[in-house]
């Protein structure tokens, strides 16, 4: 009798939009109709290939691209042109997410017929119009930085309640990321989401600065 808990929920504390995990999602709109060839880049440098047909004739408003599933495909087979193909409308949304596992993926997408050395889009440098959506599990105080700029903010995640009512996270916090991050001080409940609306080139890194281990730990510290 074992609960099916994914260890990665509880062991991955921070987030990096350039190294996506289960706790983050990137939403991108291609805008221009074309055939695109993408690569999922793992932390170990391996690549898995996929294709995106951005087709004004299709009605698909959003397509989920699970990077964990793609990274599990054989790199050789993917490089031979056998990678999966996704279809989305030019104004639709490509949603890059990690359904399971340790993650740490970046995505590089370019037009299939263009010079393969020219990167059209790379999640390590988010573009204006992108959305980076994130969840923080561990209670504590975090720093938020755009490592491609100077914008900074602070996030505080409160400790879970006492279980007197079944907890449901509140609605996500909307955050504007341009030259600055607004709001600069973000207060969240555990598992409450944040939607970063990206207005400038960005790689968002969220790091734990001070852990909150709850009332028991605080009492123990004062004893």
């Amino acid at each position: 009798m074992v609960a099916t808990l994914d260890r990665n929920f509880f062991t991955q504390i921070g987030l990096d939009s350039g190294a996506l995990t289960m706790l983050g999602v990137i939403v991108h709109t291609f805008g221009e109709a074309s055939e695109y060839r993408g690569a999922v880049i793992s932390g170990d440098g391996n690549e898995a290939i996929f294709y995106v047909s951005v087709d004004p004739g299709c009605a698909v408003a959003g397509v989920n691209i699970d990077l964990a599933a793609l990274a599990g495909t054989a790199p050789g087979a993917a490089a031979g042109g056998q990678g999966p193909r996704y279809v989305v409308h030019p104004k639709g949304y490509a949603v890059f997410r990690v359904a399971g596992g340790p993650g740490g993926y970046a995505v590089s997408v370019r037009k299939a017929v263009e010079d393969p050395e020219v990167t059209a889009y790379d999640t390590r440098a988010l573009q204006p119009g992108d959305i980076f959506s994130a969840i923080l599990m561990r209670p504590g105080r975090y720093s938020v930085r755009n490592v491609l700029g100077d914008a900074k903010a602070e996030v505080t995640v409160s400790y879970p309640g006492d279980g007197k009512a079944a907890y449901k996270p509140p609605a996500p916090e909307a955050v504007e990321l341009g030259e600055t991050i607004e709001p600069a001080h973000i207060r969240l409940k555990p598992m409450q989401g944040m939607n970063f609306n990206v207005r400038t080139a960005a790689r968002i890194v969220i790091e734990l600065q001070e852990a909150d281990d709850g009332p028991r730990a605080r009492e123990a510290a004062t004893d």
């Binding site: 074992v2 808990l5 929920f9 509880f10 561990r138 879970p160 279980g163 009512a165 079944a166 281990d213």
Partner: peptide
């Protein structure tokens, strides 16, 4: 599981509720 940290256990109990 024993590897689940204390804060996560508290979070699970909070989700489960009464």
């Amino acid at each position: 599981p024993s590897w689940v940290p204390g804060w996560a256990v508290d979070l699970l109990w909070d989700i489960i509720g009464p």
